[in-house]
Design a protein around this nucleic acid. Sequence first.
RNA 1: GGGCGAGUGGCGCAGCGGGAGCGCAGGGCCCUUACAAGGCCAAGGUCGGGGGUUCAAAUCCCUCCUCGCCCACCA
Length: 908
Amino acid sequence: MSTLDPRFDPAAIEADIFAAWQQAGAFRQRPAADDTAARDALSPEIAEPYVITIPPPNVTGSLHMGHALNNTLQDVLIRKNRMAGRPTRWVVGTDHAGIATQNKVEQKLAKEGLTRFDVGREAFIEACWEWRREHGGRIIQQLRAMGCSCDFDDEWFTMNESYQRAVREVFVDWYRAGLIYRGTRIINWCPRCTTALSDIEVEHQDKDGKLWSIDYPLTDPVDGIDHITVATTRPETMLGDVAVAVHPDDERYRALIGSTVVLPLMNRAIPIIADEYVDPAFGTGAVKITPAHDPNDYEVGERHGLEQINVLDERAFVNENGGKFAGLERDLARKAVLYELQQAGYLSDSTPHTHAVGVCYRCGTAIEPWLSDQWFVDMKPLAEPAIQVVRDGRVRFTPTRWENVYYHWMENIRDWCISRQLWWGHRIPVFYCTACGWHDALKTDETICPQCGAPLVQDEDVLDTWFSSQLWPFATLGWPAPFGADTPAELAFNYPTSALSTARDILFLWVARMIMSGLYFAGDIPFSDVIIHPTVFNKEGKRMSKSLGTGVDPLDLMADYGADGMRFGLMLQVTGVQDLRFNEEKLLKSRDFANKIWNAARFVLMNAAGEYVPTLADVSDAAQLADRWILSRLAGLARRVDAGIDAFEFGEVTRELFDFAWTEYCDWYIELAKGRLAAEGEAAAQVRRVLLFVLDTFLRLLHPFMPFITEAIWQKLPRPAGTDAGADLPQQLITAAWPDVAALGSLVDADAERRIQLLQAVVTALRSTRARYGLSPRKPLAVLVRTQDATDVQLLQAVADQISTLGHASDFAVGTDIEKPAHSAVTVAAGLEIYLPLEGLVDFAAERARLEKERAQLSADAAKLEKKLSNPGYLAKAAPEIIEKDRARAAETASALAAVDAQLTELD
RNA sequence: GGGCGAGUGGCGCAGCGGGAGCGCAGGGCCCUUACAAGGCCAAGGUCGGGGGUUCAAAUCCCUCCUCGCCCACCA
């Protein structure tokens, strides 16, 4: 009674299944955080909630391969824990993505010939909200298509009202605590985005440039020296030079310290100073000092009380301080400055020089180190406790090596520039009196100065997007309500969250900061596990990039392979290594795998014949070797999958599931079942029960990885009503019980696992002998098996029918006293000697060649083992079970060798 | 300048102290009534080079080579 099509079509089922899950409320936390009575009723081992807050994708984003991988992985964890009965919740939402969103809206305005200044701040922000309403839901929709079981009824946005309160609370708190301050510093400035960036938002690229040498003439020659030559990679900044620095111990220049030089082109007298910062071995050993355009020069300038002359404007054009170069864009200014220097004879040398150029992580424009007023967070006091929780093991990294990366950054942490000269974002809640100079950070907007009554104005800048992102694990759980009596139930129950899974490139931008702010504001770690998943590269090992055309779109993949195929194929490729070279072949195999399971289910359903899915007790008394074998394998699989998911070993678990289903359940168990099903009666009923039981349990284990197909099949399995899920829930796999690994342990049967090899050896001998001699696979052959083990005789007799079915044996005989018939092919395996009489069917020259080859292999193995077993050091030091195993192997090899030798003799 | 990761059959990758595995490609046979997106069989590797530790090394240590990534203010 098959209700399944012979070919699995993902598109036909995915949307309906997803809708059914959502309709059933399967994604909601059960019991809800505020349902204390229900929570108290949970048994202790599942009472602990399992919570993940999704790394919020940019609201401008579209699903890419990194998302596909990361969200599959999180969904696996969520689904497994949900099935295990824990109150599970996956918090979903998007990030307002300051620069990215602002860029989108500015591009839209540009099409109408407008800039943001034309429309004004208010209207621009409204346009951003409008953009979000129109396009911001795309990536959430794509998560649904993937089958992600997030709590979509409670979607968050880093700019929604409650979130804004959280950001403001944090700012004011840190401000009051003295952790947020304003200062004039050299910061990273993106002249295209016209905003400051933090240090970690700058990417460094090696660029081929030049190191130019410029002669600065001395005002008054010293000992016949009339100039000093400085080396620079950025000649245009010389317009803002205020000194030349040399190392105090540099003999070449010692006499010049304290002299003045005339700055070429600007005709300004500037001093030669001594500073340890200068490396005498680099360049000419003399450095031009431009405090407004280089962080090191700024430091030097501070030490020596030098002026700071800013020669570039916010778009990196030379400003009025640049003399006749004013108005030139920085690259043009460089050319012009070099030309003028050369014309005037100041340019003495240029050599090729590669150096790291900082570029904006959002737009790729070269960063300008620029002097300006910005807001900063003092990070050291926040970093210390955040380092400690990792040292204490309260926050664990997977793979653990990332802990060292974390420590290194945290121990060398620098202050965080949090102000951005943007409009889209959380506006800095600092208010200034227009009259008396009063200013403060305020939790609510005020218009009148509390000191003098004059109007207040708010700071123009907004906060770094990551300033709000860092609050994600607790702001999405209802913070800020004060802790203690008024703590929202949701926060108290769900915080700290369980695991955070993310890409390595935001370890500092986001993960580290969540730990710091979580400890500070929510009073505890934000999550106990940080999973750093591999970065997805393309087949050539290159970064996936839309603009470069090196990317693969997960939506296209889902269309071709189904959501399940994409998920499983990605999981197959996960390892503990840093990189993942995406291989589409794995998706093809995953789709095939889905089809394989689909058809296995078809077979089982066609043969279910009135049986319900049995309980563990119903299959525990299975007597047949094959049954005990598959049940034992299933128990082992369940144990490994259960532990593997908990240990975040996604790749290994996926491969285990694949191998079990395909090789063991389909290739062997189902094939073995066919003959027994035909027999009918109790024997057939038992096979049906085992088939159903294994399929049911396997679908549960596979569900976190392939949610759609497993749900579709599982719902077709025959079972009495009300046997799974809560009474108020529909019968769905998503909320069905996770297999009880401990109970399944009773099915482990090491003997059965070993003995099934006997059967496989006989069947394989039949198949390969036929293949070797070009006999039709269906040509019936008689089989005789000799073994010294009486138990093996019984076992093989019990499965004689199945050997006949799988191997197309005509006659089957097994015993301790079997004699080899004349003209037989002999196979020695699993301690058995398997004889296939081939009188008149084959050319024995080929058989001789084969046996010679096998003999060579066997005697090499035997020699190796013998050498090992006669080594006194080995016998003295190796573990007893290893020696035992090797002895058994040696005995087996020796008897196989003897058998092959005997066979060769007979062929003569 | 520091740090991390990778180098295993033609290709893509597992394995990470005790018998070299998987998928794909290639070869042979099979439409066997769940699945040809399938089944069966066979072939294919001195686990980057060198040294060391160990009874035992693809697996641990050292070193070198080749790739990739991260951090770092050297003009």
